[in-house]
């Protein structure tokens, strides 16, 4: 029986017991685990957790031989972490602008 094919090479035969996924093996897709952790701790919690769940899915699908599934989980993980970063950034900027506007507005209305 053959071992797993080297990264970057097409699988000749799917490994025994894993014939239900008929797709070629590529390199292990990036799982964005670190990025998801950063999003979880630093800003957008639900998106960070969605990222971590997809990171887990990238690894387990790849090891099960479902390379296309791993690839799509990787895309999802990137989508959630990217969205988390963008929402976090926009939120921070909007919050800052809001505080400044309220501060300036308050000064203008009520004097010093």
């Amino acid at each position: 029986m053959e071992e797993n094919p080297p990264f970057g090479q097409a699988a000749g035969q799917p490994p025994f017991g894993q014939s239900n996924f008929n797709n070629p093996a590529g390199p292990r897709p990036k799982n964005y685990l670190i990025e998801s952790i950063l999003v979880t701790i630093l800003c957008c919690l639900p998106l960070g957790i969605a990222g971590i769940v997809n990171a887990a899915s990238v690894n387990s699908r790849y090891d099960a031989g479902d390379y296309a599934g791993a690839e799509s989980a990787s895309k999802n993980a990137w989508k959630y972490t990217k969205l988390g970063f963008i929402i976090g950034l926009v939120g921070v900027v909007l919050y800052f602008v809001l505080v400044v506007v309220i501060g300036v507005g308050g000064l203008a209305m009520f004097g010093r």
Binding site: R28, I34, I37, V53
Partner: peptide, 16 residues
Amino acid sequence: LIGHPATAKVIFVVVV
């Protein structure tokens, strides 16, 4: 370790 299937699951459990 980053690519290990258990790593992300353990982190998920720790976070929750």
